[in-house]
Nucleic acid binder design. Structure first.
Lengths: 169, 169
DNA sequence: CCGTGCATGTAAGCAGTTACATGATTTC
DNA sequence: GAAATCATGTAACTGCTTACATGCACGG
């Protein structure tokens, strides 16, 4: 994130929230200690740049940091994928419910994905602009997020008639 | 899971691994203490049923347990969705790489999803069979998993030409 | 002068995993 | 008789979150 222009811990958090949040979250309590560690290891160079009397520490990536990033990106080995979704969990067990209650769960799962779809589409123009000047991959991951939630909504729509017809009988 | 026929902790783990693993994982260290808690709360009823000299405790759901399940399923409130994917994280930052290295990351992400797609499709017949007798929702969540990974593969395929053409210039 | 945003950081706690420990039964 | 599977459970650790603590700057 520092490499992409986020100078302070605060800016990193902001950038995360409008870019990778869909597949990776972090909290301030993670950021600040790690900035210190990365500086100690020589992967970042930091300096104090207070704004008025408010303390502020800004960072830039070092050549060693660039190399470490590329090393990590090209390293072979597993790339852990972890999904933990209470919505799908509820859906899985929804056969225990009456049909209209099951339909309510399904509707809520669908609504949630539509909401996220809208949020992701809102940042699409910015990602498309960034793709114009050398940063094409953020747009790629954004499109994966969009495709993912669109797929969920579609599966919900396909399944809804079955529940609706069922509850009419 | 007990309600769906998994009698022991061991069987629960097995059932999880062929059903909800795509969106929810658990380890034995979680299962056994929780079985004890659920029994104390009267939501499960357990009894020892050793096989030969090997100890074994089997459980069945109580009416209170059924009610608690339905209560949880219909409870309003947020349904946390957490995704943590190292593959997408690497893709996001892949602009720091040469085009052929970036292509390698993309290929690996695609391969991974194809692998999972195959694993999910392998359990589809079983889910379709279960859908015939009252358990339609497991098939629904399975289809979401399939749709998800198919969407990822499609986005990968759409993006690959851009990288391939780029590296030819 | 008050609310919002900028900015940094610590402490406590929690949910979950890995590793360990044990041992019986079945299958080859 | 060795290996895989069945079966249960604990202890230590880890990564991450929440809550807390602090205080400046700026717009209204």
């Amino acid at each position: 994130m520092v490499r992409l222009g986020a100078r302070s811990g605060y800016e990193i958090k902001q950038m995360v929230d409008v870019s990778i949040r869909f597949f990776w979250t972090i909290s301030p309590a993670q950021i600040y200690p790690n900035l210190q560690l990365l500086e100690q290891e020589g992967l970042l160079r930091g300096r104090s740049e207070p704004q008025g009397r408010r303390p502020r520490r800004v960072f830039e990536i070092t050549p060693a940091g660039e190399a470490a990033l590329r090393g990590w990106l090209t390293a072979p080995g597993p790339m852990p994928f972890e999904l933990r979704d209470t919505g799908m969990l509820k859906l899985f067990f929804a056969d225990a419910l009456e049909e209209d209650d099951a339909l309510a769960v399904l509707t809520e799962v669908k609504r949630r994905s539509e909401e996220r779809l809208a949020a992701l589409r809102a940042i699409e123009p910015a990602a498309e602009h960034a793709a114009g000047d050398g940063a094409a991959h953020p747009l790629l991951t954004l499109q994966m997020g969009i495709a993912f939630h669109r797929a969920i909504v579609e599966v919900c729509n396909d399944f809804m008639p079955r529940l609706a017809i069922g509850s009419m009988e």
